[in-house]
């Protein structure tokens, strides 16, 4: 178990280093002339050069990467080019907002998705299964902005239940539901698609497994077979999917937050990208990748905890 964990941790670290390098490269090399971007077309070449020196852009690539990384781990994420505020606070504030929105969606939909997935599996190839599977598959296929637009038209324009644009809720149930429900819906649609599909596949497999046959032919009662033999094994892979989804969620928030004007990290990345705000972009994108890597790591560990084959491996 320990060797497995340390190995997995090392792997995640390697991935993170690579990730940070990719982020740095993408945002450092791609935009070309940063000084020119900030100062605009009317600045002189000398002014641009002076700014480049001030920003440390005249150093070699690896040096700049090292400077960026060492500052980053100390929480010094630089200053936004366009907003002129410290990046750390800016990114963290937006990140927290996204976290609230994502958590809201996950908590509401994951149990429902699993329940429907299991229901479909126990009615394998029957009408209930077909209905759930096709619905889940369609939900998975729809881009967030399509579902976003549809729910917006339905709930804000046809029936006026929710505001067209959402803000961060204060800590009260009506406020939370009022502000988060609509932007969370497109997310929930996607998650339902993924998680119900995985739960179904896992459960179908477990139902057909040799150990389930053994359990049935031991004459055990149905509830015991389902809970202890089928679900205990089938929901294991689903855990991983939920975690991976939690990571991806942050990415798909770009679209949702844009539609609903919600001040989250996706919104921030989109604005920073269009404004070529390099420090904000670097920090925000790296944070997203970090969250993804960490949730994946946690998923694997959770899997290991629940799976004796991994847990007890020496």
């Amino acid at each position: 178990m320990l060797s497995y964990l340390s190995k997995r941790l090392l792997l995640a670290l390697v991935t993170l280093v690579l990730v940070s390098f990719i982020v740095f490269l993408a945002s450092d090399v791609l935009p070309g002339d940063v000084g020119r971007t900030i100062l605009g077309n009317f600045a002189t070449q000398a002014q641009v050069h002076a700014l480049d020196v001030k920003l440390g852009l005249d150093h070699p690539l690896l040096d700049r990467y090292w400077i960026w990384v060492s500052h980053f781990v100390r929480g010094d994420w630089g200053t936004s080019y366009t907003l002129q505020v410290p990046v750390f606070g800016l990114v963290m504030r937006h990140f927290l907002n996204s976290l609230i929105l994502g958590a809201f969606a996950l908590v509401l939909i994951v149990p429902v998705s699993i329940a429907f997935g299991v229901l479909a599996a126990t009615h394998h190839d029957r009408p209930i299964d077909k209905a759930i599977s096709v619905t889940g598959m369609s939900m998975l296929a729809l881009p967030e902005f399509v579902t976003g637009i549809v729910v917006l038209v339905l709930f804000s324009i046809v029936v006026h239940w929710f505001p067209v644009s959402s803000s961060v809720p204060v800590f009260s149930l009506p406020s939370i539901v009022r502000n988060l429900f609509l932007p969370a819906l497109p997310e929930m649609v996607l998650i339902f698609g993924y998680v119900s599909r995985m739960a179904r596949a896992g459960t179908v497999e477990a139902l057909n497994a040799g150990y389930t046959r053994t359990a049935v032919l031991k004459g055990l009662p149905r509830h015991r077979i389902m809970l202890r033999h089928v679900l205990r094994n089938s929901l294991l892979p689903t855990i991983t999917v939920v975690a991976v989804q939690a990571g991806y969620l942050v990415g798909s928030l770009i679209v949702v937050e844009t539609i609903f004007n919600y001040p989250g990290i996706g919104n921030l990345i989109y604005t920073a990208a269009t404004n070529h705000d390099q420090p904000v972009l670097q920090a925000a994108v790296f944070l997203v990748a970090l969250v993804y890597t960490v949730t994946n790591l946690m998923a694997d560990m959770l899997y290991a905890v629940f799976n004796p084959r991994v847990r007890l491996a020496s």
């Binding site: 942050v250 990415g251 990345i269």
Partner: peptide, 14 residues
């Protein structure tokens, strides 16, 4: 580790 849309946003915007 990067959501696909984020990579696309990053590259296309820049």
């Amino acid at each position: 580790a990067f959501p696909l849309v984020i990579i696309a946003v990053l590259v296309l915007a820049l």
